[in-house]
Amino acid sequence: MQDRQRGDRMSLELSTAKVDDPSQLSYWHQVVSEAFVPYEVAVPRRRTEGFRGTVTAHAIGDMQVATVDADPHTVFRTPSLIRRSPQDDFLVNLAVRGSVIVTQGERDAVLRPGEFTLYDSARPCRITGPDRFGLVSLKIPRPLFTAHCRLPQDATATVVRGDHGVGALVSPYLRSLTRHAAELAPDVVQQVGINVLELLGAALPKGPASGDGSALPRSAQWLRARHYIAQHIADPQLSPAMVADALGVSIRYLQVLFRAEGTSPSRSIQEQRLERAARLLTDPRHAGRTITDIAFGIGFKDASHFTRAFKNHYGAGPRAYRDRQSPAGPV
C-alpha cells in the first residue's frame, strides 16, 4: 500500500501484487472498502489461484476519481452492511476494459467499454466484473452531487452510452482525469470538479420532462461546446452550425454562450486550432513534420491562411516560432 500526499490532495496506489496468494482476496476486500465505500466481496467458485487487483485513486476537491483493474469478482452492499457502515455518496462507474454490471433496484446496467452509469451507496447495490475488467470510478458526496445534477427518482443503474451526445464528452474527460489528476494545481482543482459535475449532470437521464439542451446551465453548455470543438478540431468542415447541431441548440444560442465568455464560436475554433498547432510545433515527437502537414492536420484548408493566422495570434510565423522554442535551435 502506498499513499502519496500532494498539497491538500491524497493519491492512493493499492495492489494485491505484493501480498502472498492466500491473503490476496482478503487484502482486496480491505482495498476496495478503503478506497471507495465498505463492500462485501465474492469471487467465482471456479477460481482457485490468487487474486490480482489494483486501484489508483486521486482526490478532486471533495470528490475522488479512481481506476480499477481486477480479476473477475463482485462487490456488493447489503442492507445490514449499509446499517453498519452508512455512506452517503453517489458513484459513477465507467467501463474501460471488459464488461461491468451495476445492479440497483430492479435494474441491471450492463456496461461495455466507454459506457457508464450511476449508483447510490446508501442503497443496496451490486457491481460485477464477470471477466477481468478495468473501470474508472468517480465518488461524489451526495450534497455536492445534488447541488449540480438533477436526477429523476430511482434512475440509478441506467446505462449512458459513450459514443454519442454528452456521454461521448464525459467518458474521455473521466479517463483523462485519472491520468492527470495528480498534476493539477490546487487553484484549478475546484473548477475542474465543477466542470466534471456539470458535464455529468448534462449526460445523466432526465426523465420525460427533460426538455432540450438549451435548458441546461450555460456554463455546462459552453463546456460541452469547447469539448466538442477540441474533439473535432482536425475536421476541416468543423463550423458553429456543426457544434450547435451536436449540442442540440440553435446557432444563435451558441453565439450567446460564447459571447458571455468574450469570444465567438468561430474565433474559439480558430484559437483552439492555433493552440494545438503551437503544441505540435514545439513537441520533439513532431519535429519531422512539415508546417503544412501540421496545418492540414488541425483542420486548416490553406497553409498561407494558417501562417497569417498563427503570426497574428503569436506574433511570429510558425517556422520562426518553432525555431525559437526548439532547445537545439532551428530545425
Results as ranks from 00 to 15, higher is better:
L94H: 02
T78F: 04
T117I: 02
V96M: 11
V110P: 03
L118M: 10
Q104P: 03
D131T: 13
L135Y: 12
T117C: 10
V75E: 11
P86K: 04
T74D: 01
D120A: 11
R83L: 13
L118N: 01
V96W: 02
R84L: 14
V102A: 10
L138A: 00
G114K: 07
R132F: 10
L81R: 11
F90Y: 15
A95Y: 06
T117P: 04
P79K: 06
L111A: 05
S99H: 14
K139G: 10
A109Q: 05
L135Q: 15
R77T: 06
D108W: 09
L81P: 00
R132L: 09
Y119D: 06
K139R: 15
V102Q: 01
S137W: 02
D88M: 10
Q87S: 15
Q104G: 05
T103V: 13
T78V: 04
R126Y: 05
R107Y: 06
P72E: 06
R126E: 13
R126S: 14
D108H: 15
V102L: 02
H73V: 03
G105W: 00
R83G: 13
Y119A: 10
A122K: 07
G98I: 00
T74M: 07
E115H: 13
G114W: 06
I127D: 02
L91A: 14
S121C: 10
D71P: 03
F133D: 01
L81E: 01
G129F: 07
R84W: 10
A95N: 00
K139Q: 14
R97V: 09
F133M: 08
I82F: 09
P86D: 02
T78D: 04
V75R: 03
F76D: 08
P113A: 05
L94V: 07
G98R: 09
A70G: 08
P79H: 07
D71R: 07
A122H: 11
T78I: 03
S85M: 13
L118E: 01
R84Q: 14
I127W: 05
I127N: 03
P79W: 07
L111E: 01
E115N: 14
R112L: 15
D120E: 12
F116Y: 11
R132I: 03
R126M: 12
R83I: 10
S80D: 15
V96I: 11
T128N: 05
R84K: 15
